[in-house]
Design a protein around this nucleic acid. Sequence first.
DNA 1: ATAGCGCCCTGGTGGC
DNA 2: TGCCACCAGGGCGCTA
Length: 304
Amino acid sequence: MPELPEVETLRRGLEREVSGRRILGAVVANAKVLKEQTETAFRQRSIGKRIGQIDRRGKYLLLSLDEASHPTIEGKTESNSGDSYRESDVFPTVSPFSLCIHLKMRGQLILQPADAPIAPYHCISLLLDNGLALRFHDMWTWGEMRVLTASEINKETGLAKMGKEPLSDAWNVEDLAVRVGARNVPIKTLLLDQRVVAGVGNIYADESLFRAKIHPERPGNSLIRAELERLVVEVRTVLTEAVTGGGTTSDDYTDLAGQPGRYTPRVYDRAGQPCVVCGTSLTRTRLGGRGTVYCSRCQETPQE
DNA sequence: ATAGCGCCCTGGTGGC
DNA sequence: TGCCACCAGGGCGCTA
């Protein structure tokens, strides 16, 4: 399942490979990933646009779609002047639309030659002006790919209420303490809540808790300050390591080129195997409907 | 306000 | 061997 490190890896790939490219055409093979958006609206809002800045927020990818026809914008985009043209009052609505992508469980983004064979579960292709196609595949069609305005993004996604980016300086133990607060909910469930912290999913929630030596079923309001501090450190560490490794090795995820990630989890999907620290057989349980793996010795619930 | 559950979807798995 | 029920799971919407 793509989480923050996988989506960030894709973002970096897109920044290298498709930023500045013009969208010449769009093929909608499975409109389910457009959700409420019509195929007509998707095509009208994307075809002819130039892909500008590539942003990530939590597990969302946001590609700004700029008017490609105007020479001023074109020139500045090509000269790599960043987003300085956004400050211009000449074109106050230079980028009203963003291509908004969420891969959910099984979505994949692949960049390949436009004439490459269409793979199974192909949903959307964006044909670019360099002979490549950006393709969205999704076996379950839970994923989302839409072209939205800023207000539509706020209305139709949870982005407005999303918590802070865990790899930003703005995220710290104070912020986590406020959002976890007095909630009598398992800490694992809270970590998965995108309003608590952005981008953490099932893999990295389990990994962070294991490394912070905190039992996933501990209620949020039972954690002492030192534990919250450890958790902040370990969430950052595990996400940073996973970004460095290009994401977790998984059947569900590949980068833009189709390559798997190189990060290897210590507990996720290792139920019954020995703990890498103490050798205890790792325990699997269910928490809030999610499979959860932990070490019953390293992450022992303290005696009350 | 908040916690819990059902929904979406389909390949893989385990039981008989 | 073959069939089929069941499972996994992010995010959202509904309910109590």
